[in-house]
Design a protein around this nucleic acid. Structure first.
Lengths: 272, 272
DNA sequence: GAAATAGTGTCTTTAAGACATTATATA
DNA sequence: TATATAATGTCTTAAAGACACTATTTC
């Protein structure tokens, strides 16, 4: 075994002279100076759409402990040692809604790192956006109080409302402020607005939002989803022009009776 | 002072009954279960453009220790307890190039979190993109061996070359593989490609890349920068059409003789 | 047939692109 | 005046949008 006259010489030897394998073996045996490290979490903006009620939905979880007791928060949680953040997002989403999300349907939004964004300490969060095709009947176990909120854009505000709990949260689209009677925990208002703007900007060229409609959907259903993000009536989106623009991203897969009226053709998002 | 019959009861009291201030005071006194926490770093894709040589430049630092000894890496470093990642990026960039970057000229790209992306342990990195208007004569202190690489797009490859060290790195734009004689450390090839694609996709609608030209620049200079990212000659970008499209984002601020030929008008990026 | 819903076709306006012309400098 | 460089103008083509019309269903 090699011997060294000083710790510094040993370090220099392994870092620059030894093989990489030898270096890594040595490195793992060292007691490292304890740097301050942050906790890392993910937060997921999880959306779905209810065709029957024509409502866009966002999942929120009510906090029953400090900090932000009684505020609403995005589903999320701590990243584990062996996970990429995408995997954390999928795991947490499954744990809280029972819904499995394909990794390709997950979009990373932004990493929020204000060192004081969590009053308990240093927590950095990576935010994600996911769409699911159906509203699960029960979102999460009862203890965590996960609820689907209806998301409505009106003027320069986003309204988040939940019938069960009578909760009502209002976000200002321009300033990012929370105005409603109820509140969002941490910087989750910022995350939700980031997600909303992300979708609204990109949907015309990458209409992944339509995943909220499930596998198959009609042009009119797609118009309804778009209208939610634009804060207008779906009738203000011209069927013909919309179809012309969207057809680039869709494949026709059949036809479906629509109750009264002419049956609608049904489409599917093209695989990218 | 309040007393509790069990630790659990105490926890429950502070989390749900006490005031938030009381909760936080209590929380900070607790010895917390040591969760595994990652180190968090930033990596900065720092670009500039040399008008004289018409070359796009990217800053890389050669590693002289394991792991990835002798490979080239993006400038970056560990996030400190009191910093947002943007601040870390600005600090590290200043330390390594002497250049101060305005926070508004920093764009967050993506957070890379593969738990095994660093052979030494768990390191999550937040990547940034920054443009600086001038190529500093000396990039960083000598010990860290920071060098400006010329970035050239040819066919489906990106060539990174440095004259001093004769280093040459080739990246495949389609697969993301590193092909050249020299190599990039960690997943930095992926980060550079993310940055390159980010710029190329967005420059027509948000021409922040033009910050590499400094405050004031001509239409032709802007065409030359765009051409670098498209891998074509600037003459293949029609002056008239390009100006028509860009004028939306520019303000005319004067005129400048160009040596031979008609003087060019000079422009500045509109403040958003 | 009336009402409801969806799909198709046409015309207008606007933006994108190709290309030709004009303007201002230097040698 | 020739040449280099940059700016401007015109024409063509393609995309975006407004609007009218046709098709298929239920009551």
């Amino acid at each position: 075994m090699k011997s060294f006259s000083s710790k510094h010489e040993e370090k220099h030897y392994f870092e620059t002279q030894a093989s990489e394998t030898a270096y890594l073996d040595w490195y793992k045996q060292q007691t490292l100076p304890k740097y301050d490290m942050p906790s890392v979490t993910i937060d997921n903006v999880l959306m779905c759409y209810n065709k029957t009620s024509d409502q866009l939905k966002l999942l929120l979880v009510q906090r029953n402990t400090h900090p932000y007791q009684y505020s609403w928060a995005l589903p999320g949680g701590f990243v584990k040692r062996t996970e990429a953040t995408e995997e954390t997002c999928m795991r947490e989403t499954f744990e809280e809604t029972g819904v499995s999300i394909d990794i390709h349907n997950l979009a990373q939004l932004h990493t929020f790192s204000d060192p004081y964004r969590d009053p308990r300490g240093w927590v950095i969060t990576v935010s994600y956006l996911a769409f699911i095709g159906e509203e699960p009947l029960t979102a999460g176990d009862d203890t965590r109080e996960a609820k689907w909120f209806t998301l409505e854009r009106k003027d320069h505000h986003i309204h988040l409302t939940n019938e069960d709990t009578k909760a009502h949260i209002i976000l200002d689209l321009d300033t990012g402020d929370t105005l409603g009677p109820d509140t969002l925990a941490f910087d989750h208002a910022k995350i939700i607005l980031t997600a909303f703007n992300h979708i609204t900007e990109k949907m015309h060229h990458e209409p992944n939002v339509l995943q909220v409609l499930g596998e198959d959907f009609s042009i009119t259903e797609a118009r309804k989803v778009f209208a939610k993000f634009l804060g207008i009536s779906y009738k203000d989106i011209d069927h013909s022009n919309f179809k012309k623009a969207m057809l680039e991203y869709l494949v026709e897969v059949g036809e479906r009776p629509t109750g009264i009226g002419r049956p609608s053709k049904i489409y599917r998002l093209k695989a990218i």
